[in-house]
Simulated scan of single mutants.
Amino acid sequence: MLSTPLTPPLVHGAAEVETTPRGLRPHRLPQWARAQFPDPHLLMMEGQPSGVRVGFTTTARTVALVTHPSRLAYRGADRPRGSVDLVVDGAVVASSPLADGDVIESDLRTGATEFRPGPAHTTTFDGLPDGHKRVELWLPHNEAVELIELRTDAPVTPVPQDDRRVWLHHGSSISHGSNASTPTQTWPAVAARLGDVSLRNLGLGGNALLDPFVARTLRDAPADLISVKLGINVVNLDGMRLRTFVPAVHGFLDTIREGHPTTPLLLVSAIYCGIHEDTPGPGAVDPETLGTDQVRFVATGRSEEQAQGKLTLRVIRDALASVVEHRADPNLHYLDGTTLYGADDAVAHPLPDGLHPDTATHQIIGERFAAHAFTPAGPFGQPTAR
C-alpha cells in the first residue's frame, strides 16, 4: 500500500485545515471566527466535519483512511457512532462506522463531563471499480476527526478544482445532519447529490443564531448558490424577541450581500416541529426520558408569552417571508420549511426525539429541497457565472 501525505488540497468542503501533531484537523469556521466566540459547544459543532470530504482521482481498488476520532457521548442516552462514506464518481458506494478514538461523556442531569482517550481508527474500503475514477471519502458529520494517513494500492492525484457549482448552506442541527445515519444521508448531502453541486455545509448544531461572524464567513466564502435556514435555534434557545430578530435577519443578509451582491440566495424557515410551533422556548431535554430508548425534547415556554414578543416557529415563518418581500431583491427567495416537512409528515414520519428527523426523513427533506431549488424554474435552477 502507498502512503499519501494528507495535505489541504485533498480536503474539500472545509473553511480551513489545522495542522496538529497527529495530522490535519478540518474546520468549518475559519480561525478568526472561532476566536471571536470560543464557546466549547460552538467549537465542537464546527469541528464536526459535516459535508467535508477527502477527494482525489485514482485507479486504486483499495483505499484506507486513518483518522483519530473525537466524539461527545451522553450518559443515559445512547448515540450511534459516526461513519466514513465512500463515494465513487458521484455515487455512494459504501459506509463504514468508526470505532476507537477519544470520547467526552457528559451527564445531562449534572452537567459533569469525563474525558477518555482512545487510539486511532483505520477505515478500509476494498473492491473499488476498475479504472480511473474520482473518489470522495465523506467524513463523519457527528464526530470530529484528525486526518492522519491515506493509504491506497495505486497513486492518487488531488482534485484541485471542482467544476460543479458551489452550494454554500447554513442552518441548525438538522442541516448539520442530526439523527442521519451517515454523512451522505444528511439532507444537504442528499440535495447536493441530486442537484449535482459541490456542497459546503455550515449547518452548526444549536448555533444557527444569526451570529455576525457566521455572516462574514458566508460573505467571504466562494459560492455560486447560498441558502440560509433559520428559526429553530432562535426559538429553542429563547435567544431573541421579534423586535431584535427581524433587524438581525436584515443585518445577516446585508453582510452576505457585501460579498455576494447578486448570487442566488434562498432564505428557508424551519420545518414543522410540534413542540415549538406555538410554544416559545427555551427547549429542554425531557428528564423523564433520560435512560430510556429514546430521549425527547420539550418546550418550556408558554404560548401566551408571544404577547411579550417571544418567538415561535409560526411567528418566525411570517417574519422571514416579510423580510424577503420588503427587501425587493430579485435574487433573494423564500422557502417555507413546512413544504419540506409539514404537519402531515409529522404524523407519517414523526421526529423521534421531537426535534430532529431520522435518516428516512432526511432523505425526504433533501429530495423536496432539490425538487424546489434545483429545477429549471427554481431559485438555483440557472447556472451562474463565477
Rank of each mutant, 00 (worst) to 15 (best):
F213Q: 08
V214E: 01
V214C: 03
T217E: 11
L218M: 10
A221H: 14
P222C: 09
P222Q: 12
A223Q: 01
A223Y: 00
D224F: 03
D224V: 03
I226D: 01
S227Y: 06
L230N: 11
G231I: 04
G231H: 01
I232Q: 05
N233M: 06
N233E: 03
V235A: 03
L237F: 12
G239P: 06
L242P: 01
L242E: 12
R243V: 15
F245M: 09
F245E: 05
V246L: 09
P247D: 12
P247V: 14
P247I: 12
H250L: 08
H250E: 10
G251Q: 12
G251V: 02
F252G: 03
F252E: 07
L253Y: 00
L253D: 00
D254A: 01
T255M: 02
E258N: 02
G259F: 06
H260I: 02
H260K: 05
T263F: 00
P264G: 08
L266P: 00
V268D: 00
A270C: 10
A270M: 03
I271A: 12
C273G: 02
H276P: 07
P280L: 07
G281T: 08
G281Y: 01
P282Q: 11
G283E: 01
A284D: 09
L290I: 15
T292G: 06
T292F: 04
D293Q: 11
Q294R: 11
R296Y: 01
V298G: 05
V298I: 15
A299S: 13
T300V: 05
G301Q: 06
R302W: 02
R302Q: 14
E305W: 13
Q308A: 12
G309S: 07
K310G: 00
L311F: 07
T312M: 03
T312W: 01
L313S: 08
L313T: 11
R317D: 14
L320M: 06
L320D: 01
A321F: 02
A321G: 15
S322P: 06
S322M: 15
S322L: 15
V323A: 04
V323H: 03
E325N: 12
L332V: 08
H333G: 03
H333L: 04
G337T: 06
T338W: 04
T338A: 07
T339M: 13
Y341R: 03
Y341T: 10
D344Q: 14
D344E: 15
D344Y: 09
H349M: 13
P350K: 10
L351Y: 11
P352A: 13
P352S: 11
